[in-house]
Amino acid sequence: MLRDYQPTDAEAVGRVALAAFTQFAPHYSDWPAMANNVSRMAELSRTGEIIVAEDDGRVVGAVAYVGPNKPKAAFFDPAWPIIRMLVVDPSTRGKGLGRQLTEECLRRAERDRSAVIALHTTPIMTIALPMYLRMGFTKVCDAPDIFGVPYAVYVKALV
């Protein structure tokens, strides 16, 4: 079940985010700093909408949708809505939760009458990146590395 984030979800969302990113720890030059950033995913609720995936009362995934003209990294066009921090608990992967969370972001971008939606990701995310490409996202430019890991910006047309 997908639902909107509540402040009481902060700890669970942070825990799922950290569990989802831990497999990538060896790739980051400063994993403790990256882990600290990831575990604070709930802070994205200040400027965006966090969507939570719940299974039997337990948070098992989340994503942040940051709408058009909301604060975001300078490498994104400010008018674009963006998808941030798609995370799924490793114990529940393979059930389509990542795709469902992404599709909910697409619905929100359409609700906001946006012509495109963007995200940034990295080739080390060997499940997420191919999923985004299958869903119609295309690379538009490189983004700054994060702790030594290369990232790029991807956009999907919605109209």
Score class of each variant (00 low, 15 high):
residue 109 A to F: 08
residue 119 L to D: 10
residue 103 E to D: 15
residue 134 R to C: 03
residue 74 A to T: 12
residue 100 Q to T: 09
residue 65 Y to M: 01
residue 118 A to K: 01
residue 56 D to T: 11
residue 67 G to Y: 04
residue 130 P to D: 08
residue 82 I to R: 11
residue 120 H to N: 15
residue 109 A to T: 06
residue 127 I to F: 02
residue 49 E to K: 13
residue 68 P to G: 14
residue 68 P to L: 03
residue 124 I to D: 05
residue 113 R to D: 15
residue 125 M to I: 08
residue 127 I to R: 12
residue 108 R to H: 02
residue 91 S to C: 05
residue 109 A to E: 09
residue 101 L to N: 09
residue 94 G to C: 09
residue 108 R to Y: 06
residue 89 D to M: 07
residue 72 K to P: 03
residue 104 E to V: 00
residue 64 A to T: 02
residue 99 R to C: 03
residue 133 L to F: 01
residue 128 A to G: 13
residue 107 R to K: 14
residue 111 R to L: 11
residue 96 G to P: 12
residue 69 N to D: 13
residue 101 L to G: 09
residue 128 A to I: 05
residue 129 L to H: 08
residue 65 Y to T: 01
residue 74 A to S: 14
residue 57 G to N: 09
residue 108 R to V: 11
residue 75 F to H: 13
residue 108 R to T: 12
residue 78 P to I: 08
residue 101 L to E: 03
residue 48 G to W: 07
residue 62 A to M: 07
residue 118 A to E: 01
residue 81 P to L: 04
residue 64 A to I: 01
residue 94 G to I: 10
residue 133 L to K: 14
residue 56 D to R: 10
residue 77 D to F: 10
residue 47 T to A: 07
residue 117 I to C: 10
residue 104 E to S: 06
residue 110 E to Q: 15
residue 86 L to R: 05
residue 65 Y to K: 00
residue 119 L to A: 08
residue 92 T to P: 00
residue 77 D to V: 10
residue 91 S to A: 15
residue 71 P to R: 08
residue 128 A to H: 12
residue 65 Y to Q: 00
residue 79 A to Y: 11
residue 105 C to T: 06
residue 98 G to L: 04
residue 122 T to W: 00
residue 88 V to H: 03
residue 81 P to C: 12
residue 65 Y to W: 08
residue 57 G to Y: 02
residue 49 E to P: 00
residue 50 I to S: 04
residue 80 W to F: 13
residue 108 R to I: 09
residue 56 D to S: 13
residue 103 E to K: 09
residue 134 R to Q: 14
residue 123 P to R: 08
residue 58 R to V: 14
residue 114 S to Q: 02
residue 69 N to H: 10
residue 114 S to D: 03
residue 52 V to G: 11
residue 79 A to R: 13
residue 130 P to Q: 02
residue 87 V to C: 13
residue 80 W to V: 05
residue 113 R to Q: 15
residue 121 T to H: 03
residue 109 A to R: 06
residue 69 N to P: 00
residue 60 V to L: 05
residue 96 G to R: 09
residue 102 T to F: 00
residue 104 E to P: 00
residue 50 I to M: 03
residue 72 K to N: 08
residue 112 D to I: 00
residue 71 P to E: 11
residue 64 A to S: 11
residue 83 I to R: 07
residue 97 L to G: 02
residue 127 I to W: 03
residue 47 T to Y: 04
residue 102 T to S: 12
residue 95 K to L: 14
residue 110 E to C: 10
residue 107 R to N: 14
residue 74 A to W: 05
residue 96 G to H: 09
residue 68 P to K: 07
residue 86 L to H: 08
residue 56 D to G: 11
residue 69 N to Y: 09
residue 48 G to Y: 05
residue 131 M to C: 06
residue 120 H to D: 15
residue 53 A to V: 06
residue 57 G to R: 06
residue 86 L to P: 05
residue 73 A to S: 13
residue 112 D to G: 03
residue 66 V to T: 12
residue 48 G to T: 10
